[in-house]
Amino acid sequence: SKTSNTIRVFLPNKQRTVVNVRNGMSLHDCLMKALKVRG
């Protein structure tokens, strides 16, 4: 089974995003990807 960790990230202006960290990806990469999608 694939394991994925879901991390809630609290952003300024009362924004919130959820990042799924996959195996083999660093938290930083996942964060940058999530913020790019939002931006």
Rank of each mutant, 00 (worst) to 15 (best):
R22N: 15
S1Q: 15
L27Q: 00
I7D: 05
N13Y: 08
N13G: 03
V37E: 02
C30R: 03
D29H: 06
V18F: 03
R8L: 09
K33T: 02
S4N: 11
I7V: 09
R38C: 00
L31A: 06
K33I: 02
R16G: 04
K36T: 06
V18A: 10
Q15H: 01
I7N: 01
R22G: 09
S4C: 11
N20Y: 12
T17S: 09
R38L: 02
F10S: 13
F10L: 06
K2R: 10
S26N: 11
N20I: 12
T6A: 08
L27P: 00
C30I: 06
F10Y: 08
V9L: 02
S1L: 09
T3A: 15
T17A: 06
M25L: 12
L11R: 00
A34T: 04
N20T: 06
V37L: 08
G24R: 11
N5I: 07
R38P: 01
S1T: 14
H28N: 09
M25T: 13
N13D: 10
N20K: 13
A34E: 02
R38Q: 05
P12R: 01
H28S: 03
V21G: 14
G39R: 05
S26H: 05
K33E: 01
N20H: 11
D29G: 12
S26C: 14
V19T: 07
C30G: 08
A34V: 03
L35R: 00
K33R: 10
T6R: 13
Q15R: 01
K2G: 15
R8C: 08
R22D: 02
M32I: 09
V9E: 00
P12L: 01
V21I: 05
I7T: 03
S1A: 05
N5G: 05
N23K: 11
G24A: 08
D29V: 11
K14I: 04
V19I: 11
M32A: 10
M25R: 12
R8H: 06
M25E: 03
K36E: 06
V9T: 15
N5S: 15
V21M: 04
K14W: 06
K14Q: 06
P12Q: 02
S26T: 15
N23T: 12
S1C: 12
L11M: 08
K33D: 03
K2T: 13
N23S: 10
K36M: 06
G24C: 14
S4G: 10
L27R: 01
S1R: 13
V37A: 08
M32L: 13
N13S: 10
V9K: 05
L31R: 00
A34S: 13
R8P: 02
L31M: 08
L27V: 15
I7M: 12
S4R: 14
D29N: 14
T3S: 08
V19F: 12
M32T: 11
P12T: 03
L31V: 07
N5Y: 10
L35A: 05
S4I: 10
A34G: 07
G39D: 14
L35Q: 01
T17I: 00
V9A: 12
S26G: 09
M25K: 13
S26R: 08
V9G: 01
F10P: 05
D29R: 06
F10I: 02
V37G: 03
K33M: 05
T6L: 02
S4D: 15
V21A: 13
L27M: 13
N13T: 09
